[in-house]
Structure formats: structure tokens, C-alpha cells
Computed example of a mutant assay.
Amino acid sequence: MVSLVYLLAIFWQLASQKNVQKKLIKYASYFLVSILIILHFKTTINAVERMSDRRAILLQSKACLLMINVVPQDECLVTKRSPEPLRKTANILDKLGFLQPGLVKSKNIQDIAGERQTNLIYGYFDTVNQIDNRTYVANGWAILPERNEVADGVILTYENTEGEDIIFKLINQRMPRPSVREYFDNSVYLDSGWQKSFTVEEIPQGGVKLKAWAFDTETGKAFLLNKTQI
């Protein structure tokens, strides 16, 4: 922008010659307008990208809020103060009907399970790796194809003795998965990866079936990912 000031000074000096004054003013105006349009265009692109990032953060935070009664000790609720006031406020707002969809009230995933469309892929529960005697790490990727976005959250469940899938973990952080972006030829799915550690105390002892679900905070529904881990 500073260089434009010097250019204007040069143009003005040349413009003192009457025979070129009109042409210089005309071309200088075109030049300045073009520069302003380019700068405005770049600023707009940057603003749109930031809006998209902000939306993703807000939806991930909403996933934490909707699961506040089911996964009360999840890391996304850790703040400088106790999350208890937030939990009380959220439940009051939910009872008054201000939260749409409402808070998840049961650890049984079937209460919020959405119907999968057979022609759509919601993601994969890739692996569960044992880190030590107490700790495991699960990973995969999850998307919401109807919305053309990554999942707002990923829910991990274990199957109890009655065959029910019980919620025990919420994942609201994302990781880059270039392979998913390339497979769908869609840059929106770049950050569809997820990873989470858990301990043996969080699941029943013995062989346990683990499943992962893509969580949609706009509908309050969870969609089963492909593959089950044991």
C-alpha cells in the first residue's frame, strides 16, 4: 500500500502536462480500483475460511454440551472452574426447551442411533492398539455425508452382557486424514481423522466388542462406523 502512494505522486507529476493529464487520471483510476478489488477478494476468501473453522469448533463444543450428562468427565469439559455449574445450567435450558436437539439422557447408544443409508459411508473404526497393561488407543475417521462435513464428534461404545452398546467415550478432536480427502476427492474431509486413548477400567473385563459412531449435533443422532473392534 505504501508503494501506491509513490505511484500516485509520479502520476500526478506527469499529469501536470495537459496533453496526458486525462489519460493518466483514467488509467490510474483503473489501476487503483483493480488493486482494491484484488485485496477485497483475498480478504473475503480468508474470512470465509475462518468462518468454516469457527463453525467446526462450535459444533465440536456442542457435541460436548449434548453429552454432558452421559460422559461427565470428558476432557472437553475441563475448564479453569468446575463444570458442575455448566451442567446445571445446561439441564435447566434443556428442560425449558432452549436446546435443540436436547441433551443426551441415556448411555445406551440405541436411544440416539440414526438410520444409516446403505449407499453412504460414515467412516471406519480402524484399529485399537494396546499401549501398556492399562491403556489402549483407538483411531479411525468419521464424516457426515448428508451434510458434507466431518463428524461433530465420535462416540465410542462397548457391548454389555445384554447386547446393548453403552457410551463410554466422546472424541471431539480431529486429525488430518489425507487418504480420506483423496478417496472422496473432497478437501472438506481432510480433518476427518480421530484418535482417543482409554483405560481398561472404563470397559468391562474380558473380550469386549467396541464400536464407533459419528455424532451429528444438528439432529442429535449417531451413525455407526464400519468395522467393530474386539
Rank of each mutant, 00 (worst) to 15 (best):
T89Y: 08
P176T: 11
G220R: 02
F31V: 02
A9T: 10
V71M: 01
A151N: 02
V200L: 05
A28E: 08
I37Y: 01
L8K: 13
G220S: 09
T118C: 11
Q60M: 12
N139R: 04
Q17V: 12
N69K: 12
F198Y: 09
A15F: 06
K62D: 02
L86D: 04
I37R: 12
Q73E: 11
E218G: 03
V154I: 02
T89E: 12
F11Y: 14
T79K: 11
L156T: 04
F98W: 09
N186L: 08
V71C: 03
L120G: 06
R50A: 03
F98Y: 07
G97L: 02
D74V: 08
K211I: 00
S192C: 07
G206T: 02
E146L: 10
R54A: 06
R147V: 00
D111T: 15
L66K: 05
L210D: 03
E75F: 09
E164G: 07
A222T: 01
A214Y: 00
S3M: 13
K23R: 15
V78I: 15
I112A: 01
S197P: 00
L14K: 02
R81E: 14
T135Q: 15
D53E: 09
L144N: 04
L99K: 12
V48N: 04
K62L: 08
E75M: 14
F184W: 03
Y183R: 14
R181D: 09
V128W: 03
T217A: 07
R54H: 11
V188N: 10
D165Y: 14
S34D: 13
V188H: 05
E164N: 09
G206V: 01
G207I: 12
S16Q: 15
C64P: 03
R87E: 13
L170F: 05
I25Q: 14
S82P: 05
T157N: 13
I25Y: 13
G102Q: 13
I155G: 00
R134D: 09
L86E: 14
G163V: 10
P204S: 04
E49P: 08
A151Y: 01
R177E: 03
A212I: 11
I109S: 13
K107S: 15
V48H: 12
A63K: 00
G153I: 02
G207C: 09
L120K: 05
K88N: 07
S52L: 12
L77Q: 05
